[in-house]
């Protein structure tokens, strides 16, 4: 799950949500533009640097990435074995590292796999930076400016608000089931999956009950009393934001130009 917003005064916190979103878009675009792991590795380093300087708790990121590791390894294997040597323009990348029976494992394929992994890394880190530094209300206001109805934005906000609640609920249900003899998440695959049914059903029943209560509580708080609502903090672009947005656009343009010169491929 994403890391929650944490109020602080870091330089990223002070930026406008639109600047950050554009930043996210330009970084991911650039990483998708280049196939070479070298460039993607450089971008990864830059994003990690930002992440460290704003004081994000690293334990949270470890938690997001940990379950992805088997997928990463799978990706490296698949790309290594499935990309034939003739796919690559550079000679070194056509090298075959080893073969499994008749199927060759190419260096280029392996490097491409690394790029794919790094792209995921980059997206996880940049989206973490955004969620960690931006209050959800700002993101909602950005959506509102794009003329999305505020009810829709409200659904997203409430959904996010309830993520920790549901996590806690599912923990409590697991504990209650274990306490009366249920083995949850152990044994073979099928046994493991079926053991989660005893968690899932109470969780669904409980969510239904909660959503009913939530609807009542919304009415109690006057939701929908008027056609619109008061915005508390108007999001505002400062000079710094304009400058950074401009730089971000330049970065994308330059990246496109470099790529068109056939640099950064495999």
């Amino acid at each position: 799950m994403l890391i929650e917003y944490f109020p602080s005064e870091s330089y990223i916190h002070k930026l406008d949500v639109r600047t950050k979103t554009l930043g996210f878009l330009s970084i991911t675009t650039i990483s998708f533009l280049f196939l070479s792991p070298v460039i993607n590795f450089f971008i990864t380093l830059c994003t990690i640097l930002i992440l460290l300087t704003i004081g994000t708790p690293l334990a949270g990121i470890k938690k997001i990435l940990k379950p992805l590791f088997p997928i990463f390894i799978l990706m490296l294997l698949i790309t290594g074995f499935t990309y034939p040597a003739n796919k690559f323009t550079s000679g070194t990348n056509q090298n075959i590292l080893f073969s499994l029976g008749d199927v060759p494992f190419t260096l280029g394929g392996f490097l491409y796999g690394i790029t794919l992994v790094l792209r995921i890394f980059i997206m996880v880190i940049t989206s973490t930076i955004i969620t960690y530094t931006t209050p959800i209300e700002d993101i909602l206001q950005m959506l509102k400016k794009t003329k999305i109805p505020h009810q829709f934005a409200f659904i997203i906000a409430t959904g996010i608000r309830f993520i920790p609640t549901m996590q806690k609920k599912s923990e409590m249900i697991q504990e209650a089931q274990q306490a009366r003899g249920a083995e949850i998440g152990t044994g073979g695959l099928i046994k493991r999956i079926s053991s989660y049914i005893s968690v899932l059903i109470p969780l669904i029943v409980d969510s239904l009950r909660m959503s009913d209560n939530l609807a009542i509580a919304m009415l109690n708080r006057g939701f929908g009393a008027m056609k619109t609502t008061t915005d508390l903090n108007e999001i505002k672009m400062k000079t710094k934001d304009y400058l950074i947005c401009f730089t971000e656009v330049i970065f994308i343009a330059v990246a496109f130009w470099i790529r068109s010169e056939n640099i950064g491929g495999l």
Binding site: P135, T158, R161, N220
Partner: peptide
């Protein structure tokens, strides 16, 4: 729990 809507 079901009467709290805000993150802060």
């Amino acid at each position: 729990e079901t009467q709290i809507f805000g993150i802060t």
